Simulated assay, not measured.
Amino acid sequence: MNLVLTVDERESLLSLLTDQQRTFILEHVKRGKKTTFANEMAKDKGLVLPSEASIEDIEMLLDEWVLEDYIDNGFINSETPCECGRPLRHQYIVKHKSTNEIRRFGITHFEEHTGIPAEIVSAIKKGFSAIDYEMDDLLSKIKRNWSLNDTKLFIPDGFTFPKEIRNHLDNQVPLLDRHIQHLRKLVSQFRDERESIKQDVPEVKKEFNWDFDSPMEDDQVSFEFDLFEEKEAQSPTTESLPINNLSGPIKDKILQYLRTVSSTRVICELLIKNHIVANQRYITGKPKIYPYVCFFLEGLVSQGELYLEDINGHEDRFYKLFK
Rank of each mutant, 00 (worst) to 15 (best):
Q256C: 06
E298G: 13
R259P: 10
K286H: 07
S247E: 15
K286A: 12
V277T: 07
I254W: 02
I289P: 14
V261I: 12
S302I: 05
F296Q: 06
L270D: 01
R265L: 11
Y290E: 15
G304N: 08
P291W: 08
E309C: 10
S263L: 01
I283T: 14
Y290D: 15
E309N: 13
I283D: 15
P287K: 01
D252E: 04
V266D: 03
T264I: 08
S262I: 08
G248I: 08
V293N: 01
D310C: 08
N274M: 09
P249S: 00
Q256W: 07
F296T: 07
I250R: 00
S247H: 11
H314S: 13
G248M: 10
Y282V: 10
L300Y: 06
N312T: 09
I272N: 03
L308E: 15
T284N: 15
R259V: 07
R281F: 01
G299F: 07
N312A: 11
G304R: 06
T284V: 06
A278G: 12
L271C: 03
F295M: 12
E309V: 10
I254K: 00
L271Y: 00
F295H: 15
E298I: 04
T260V: 09
T264V: 12
T264P: 09
K288H: 02
K253M: 04
R259G: 13
I311Y: 14
Q256G: 06
I254M: 03
D252C: 01
K253D: 13
Q256T: 11
R259S: 12
E305R: 10
G313T: 05
I276C: 02
T264F: 01
I283Y: 14
E305K: 14
L300W: 06
Y307F: 13
V261T: 14
L270I: 06
I289C: 09
R281M: 06
Q303T: 11
L270K: 00
K273H: 03
T284H: 04
F295K: 09
G248Y: 11
P249E: 03
D252T: 02
E309Q: 13
L297E: 14
Y282H: 14
G285Y: 01
Y282T: 08
I311H: 11
S302V: 06
L297A: 11
Q256L: 05
C294L: 13
P249K: 00
H314W: 08
D252A: 03
L308Y: 09
G285W: 01
A278H: 09
N312M: 08
I276P: 07
I250K: 00
T260C: 08
L271E: 00
S247C: 11
C268M: 10
I283F: 12
Y257G: 13
C268Q: 10
V266L: 02
F295W: 13
I272C: 03
G313V: 05
S263W: 01
I276G: 01
G248H: 13
I311C: 11
T284K: 07
R259K: 13
V266F: 00
A278D: 15
F296W: 12
L258R: 05
F295Q: 15
V277G: 09
E298T: 09
L255K: 00
S302Q: 14
Y257E: 14
E298C: 08
G248T: 10
I289G: 09
L270A: 02
K251N: 07
H314K: 07
Y290Q: 06
I254N: 00
L297P: 14
E309S: 14
H275A: 05
K253C: 05
L306T: 02
E309T: 08
L297Y: 13
L297I: 07
